[in-house]
Design a protein around this nucleic acid. Structure first.
Length: 577
RNA sequence: GCCGGCGUAGCUCAGAGGUAGAGCAGCUGAUUCGUAAUCAGCAGGUCGUAGGUUCAAAUCCUAUCGCCGGCUCCA
């Protein structure tokens, strides 16, 4: 069925291209595929398209649809195809044809006067189309390469029915309300201010609490699984980065600090510093695996156009660990990292995530460090681990780092965009560069295997996805504010304050809202807080509290001790509601 | 970094050559209220920044910084 919908979307893209050509003759066509929720088409035109043109383009598209023009497929020889598109002045299509492998069948699809190089398939005729809406224009490099010219891409949404299209548009509008940038301000979690530096996050008390809670959970789980916490400086002399190799290929992204006649670097990653600890003395095979973990803050000078809320920043906390082990330990180590990742990510509310196994590009062996046999073995170890755990995963060729293959987990934000969380990378490069060794049972020096891994990726990025996942209504155990105490009138202030102080003493993150506002108003203001305890005359009289649970409303009155017992149990169990 | 759009009060936005406006938030006062918005008043802006055009610029031009959507890159 998705095949049909993709066909429908792709055909709509053809109609878009036709409409643009009719309105703006001389426009050159790039490519126009179906994508999730719709389609796009890339153009090179004299003028600039803007959303102001959408009305005219959509109207033209509807005309073409009303004409009910049949889609006709024909097979052309390479020469015929080249002649056809050269004649039409469609240079990009000519380029595409040249790039097609010899012997591949070349097909074009026509409807009316419009013709496009296309594998197809398409719907029968334009009359079958109609439920679509142009959504945005954006620049996009020809063939996705930034060395190529930038084309103008028009995006559209298309669905089988009007209702589905409207649902989609409504979902997008609702996603805006879950946007972590908006919630970050509304809930007073964090801020980013250009005046003190774009991409640098200021965590406000509640956001810092959220971050700390995630980090506490992280530390607890790591200690439980045999990791050791280390702590390393934020800066190190350039020499370290020359050794690691980052200085030559990553320099543009590093903050470099001249200090007197020397040069320091603000660390863009933690690995070389962890290596430094490993190298501080001779290591025995008996010590391995060594697992150094650190919530290390790193700084990277990201290109300006790439910054995005908490998702892409210039300073962030990497929930890093480096595992040094023997070759025969790799499989077990990777296995435990995957277990840890699955556990933590699920516990934090992500039951759905996509796993990618990134392998080398078999056609470009020379771009990679390490012997092909080692790569083969490593890639199959990673694959085996995922298979053994019955996890669904996708293999992507050419996505491996030059220094080793990796496993990545993708989390999804409010808009359906994917963000990398967990990454587990084998590294054949740094152990060589730093000449790492351990003494084997026979007394010989052996090279250890190094595994880089981050479970949440970056605490900042993860917090962003996390905020959107919960829409700001966090589970009790990670909620920056767990309980709000609301006296109904000033007469209950003292009692309410007592309740508040006892909650704090029990370790509950609480607030007391004793403003002279109406109860309904205060309830509304604390609507994202898991529990609100309401105290009026009746509660003071009975020495209890009226408990309101988020999204459940009033759940009854009870003594504070009973509430504390109830909520403590839920915190312990990481209960979600 | 590239393409397009946008920067006006803390926030959301109006104002489109003639000298700055609303709602919410804030502050003050009144209200003392029973489960998702009480009322009134006050205060708040070198219109992102720097140049330029003009008698006059938030408004036009240039540059720059930032934000938003994409592309590329990426934790």
């Amino acid at each position: 069925m998705t095949f049909d919908l993709d066909t429908y979307r792709h055909s709509t893209a053809h109609v878009l291209a036709d409409a643009v050509l009719r309105l703006f003759p001389g426009t050159k066509l790039g490519i126009g595929p179906a994508i999730e929720n719709g389609f796009y088409y890339d153009f090179e035109a004299e003028g600039r398209f803007s959303e102001a043109d959408f009305d005219a383009i959509e109207t033209k598209m509807r005309e073409i649809i009303a004409q009910d023009l049949p889609f006709e497929r024909s097979v052309l020889s390479r020469e015929e195809a080249l002649a056809l598109f050269r004649g039409l002045g469609q240079d990009y299509k000519v380029q595409l044809i040249r790039g097609l492998p010899e012997g591949e069948e070349i097909t074009v699809y026509r409807h009316g006067d419009f013709v496009d190089l296309c594998k197809g398939p398409h719907v029968g005729s334009t009359g079958e189309l109609g439920v679509f809406k142009l959504t945005s224009v954006a620049g996009a490099y020809w063939l996705g390469d930034e060395k190529n010219p930038m084309l103008q891409r028009i995006y559209g949404a298309a669905f089988r029915t009007k209702e589905e299209l409207e649902d989609h548009l409504r979902l997008l509008a609702e996603a805006k309300l879950r946007d972590h940038r908006l919630l970050g301000r509304q809930l007073d979690l964090f801020s980013i201010d250009e005046r003190v530096g774009a991409g640098l996050v200021y965590w406000h008390p509640r956001g810092a609490t959220l971050k700390r809670l995630i980090e506490d959970f992280w530390i607890e789980e790591h200690l439980r699984r045999g990791y050791e916490l280390v702590s390393t400086p934020h800066i190190a002399k350039s020499a370290l980065w020359v050794t690691s190799g980052h200085y030559s290929y990553y320099k543009d992204n590093m903050y470099i600090l001249p200090v007197g006649s020397e040069e320091y670097v603000l660390k863009p990653m933690n690995c070389p510093l962890h290596l430094q600890i490993y190298k501080s003395r001779v290591r025995s095979y008996r010590e391995l695996p060594i697992r150094y973990a650190e919530l290390g803050t790193v700084y990277r000078r990201e290109r300006s156009g790439t910054l995005q809320g908490l998702f892409r920043v210039r300073g962030y906390t990497c929930d890093d660990a480096h595992i040094f082990c023997r070759a025969d330990q790799v499989e077990a180590e990777v296995g435990s990292v995957v277990d840890l990742a699955v556990f933590m990510v699920r516990e934090l509310g992500f039951n759905e995530f996509e796993i990618e196994l990134s392998l080398r590009d078999p056609d470009k062996q020379e771009g990679y460090i390490g012997a092909p046999e080692v790569w083969d073995e490593s890639e199959s170890i990673l694959r085996r681990v995922l298979q053994a755990k019955d996890l669904m995963f996708k293999e992507v060729l050419g996505e491996a780092a030059f220094y080793g293959p990796k496993i990545d987990f993708q989390l999804v934000d409010a808009y359906g965009h994917k963000h990398q969380g967990t990454t587990i990378q084998l590294d054949f490069n740094l152990p060589e560069r730093f000449d790492l060794s351990y003494v084997s049972s026979s007394g010989a020096a052996e090279r250890p295997v190094m595994i880089h891994r981050a479970i949440l990726g970056s605490i900042e990025r993860f917090a962003g996805v996390f905020i959107e996942r919960w829409g700001g209504a966090f589970p009790l155990w990670v909620s920056p504010v767990q309980v709000a105490v609301l006296p109904i009138t000033d007469a209950q202030r003292e009692y309410a304050n007592g309740v508040y102080e006892r909650l704090l003493a029990h370790g509950f993150r609480s607030v007391l809202d004793d403003r002279a506002e109406k109860l309904g108003f205060k309830i509304r203001e604390h609507s994202k807080v898991p529990y609100t305890l309401i105290v009026g005359g009746k509660e003071v009289e009975a020495s209890n509290v009226s408990v309101r649970r988020r999204s459940h409303g009033q759940i009854g009155t009870m003594t504070l001790d009973e509430f504390v017992a109830l909520a403590s149990e839920q915190v312990r169990n990481h209960e979600v509601f």
